[in-house]
């Protein structure tokens, strides 16, 4: 047994898992409130990565700054703003008119929105892979660990952890967080006690999009290339993670994402890297058959 290899895979899995976790949170929050699989969520992540790419392009090519990290932070901030705007608009156009429609309608609308956004970016930008500049410098203190965790990975882990803490604080201790929890429990009751449910739903989409954009920027600076199709797979994987942990359950999404990320890297590392996606989907099918409520979810009895 090669423990070094095992540890390397574990680290890779955790890094991958934290990216999935950031996207999965958006899915799970939206699902928790309006029971909709926001199929276009992966596309928001892709838009975030593209906006970041364009901003870094403008900043570096116009010679504004050459310090990688500051460019990255600025690009990330703008990407987050744009992703939030896209998420808000998406909800307003594609989902809000269908609030009371049959279950299948918003889902089909979501698929349509996803296809639309993917092709929109492909048409106005390019269908090819674009190189994303390396903006994270090699930190000196990472030297002893560099075999397992690169500097980019470290940035991903730290940013993810900080984002999780911020999200927890937001949901637990702020007014909008309280309103979100109330809406999740019972939308009609929440409306009765004076919560503006439409605003809460918008806020949920915005928060989810912000998280997705952060994930987009992080993954782009890790893999070093993006194209308009990256959102689709990432979205499906993140949804798998959300289901794995129990959809609608926020800690569950993080746990599910970690499990999925580790399972994927282990499967790819020990069995075959060509079948990486098969492991993810196999896991999804298995969990849905064996434990449809997910790892942390409570089984909901169907009311008749």
């Amino acid at each position: 047994m090669d423990f070094e290899y095992l540890f390397e895979l574990l680290c890779g899995g955790v890094v991958k898992g934290s990216i999935y976790a950031l996207i999965a949170l958006g899915y799970t929050m939206v699902y928790g409130i309006i029971q909709l699989i926001n199929f276009a969520h992966g596309e928001i992540y892709m838009v975030g990565a593209f906006v970041a790419l364009i901003i870094t392009g403008i900043l570096t090519l116009s010679g504004y700054s050459d310090s990688g990290l500051s460019v990255l932070v600025l690009a990330a901030v703008i990407a987050v703003i744009y992703a939030a705007a896209y998420g808000y608009t998406l909800e307003k156009i594609a989902y809000r008119p269908l609030r009371n429609a049959p279950r299948l309608s918003p889902l089909i609308s979501a698929i349509g929105a996803s296809i639309f956004l993917m092709n929109y970016v492909q048409l106005v930008q390019t269908p090819d892979f674009l190189p994303f500049p390396e903006l994270v410098p090699e930190f000196e203190f990472m030297e002893p660990l560099s075999r397992f965790v690169s500097s980019v990975d470290m940035v991903i882990l730290v940013v993810t952890a900080l984002t999780m803490v911020a999200l927890t604080v937001l949901i637990k201790y702020t007014k909008i967080g309280k309103a979100m929890r109330a809406t999740q429990q019972d939308m009609v009751m929440a409306r009765l006690v004076g919560i503006n449910v439409d605003r809460v739903i918008s806020a949920t989409f915005i928060i989810g999009s912000v998280l997705a954009a952060i994930a987009g920027v992080l993954i782009a600076s890790r893999t070093g290339q993006i194209n308009s199709a990256i959102g689709f797979m990432a979205g499906i994987k993140a949804f798998t993670a959300a289901v794995l942990g129990g959809i609608g359950n926020i800690p569950g999404a993080v746990l599910g994402a970690m499990v999925l990320g580790i399972a994927e890297t282990f499967g790819a590392g020990y069995i075959s890297s060509a079948y990486e996606d098969v492991f993810a989907f196999g896991l999804l099918v298995l969990i849905l058959i064996l434990r449809p409520a997910g790892l942390l979810g409570k089984a909901v009895k169907q009311k008749v």
Partner: peptide, 8 residues
């Protein structure tokens, strides 16, 4: 692009 928009 049109298909997506049409579906929505």
């Amino acid at each position: 692009l049109v298909f997506g928009a049409v579906m929505v």
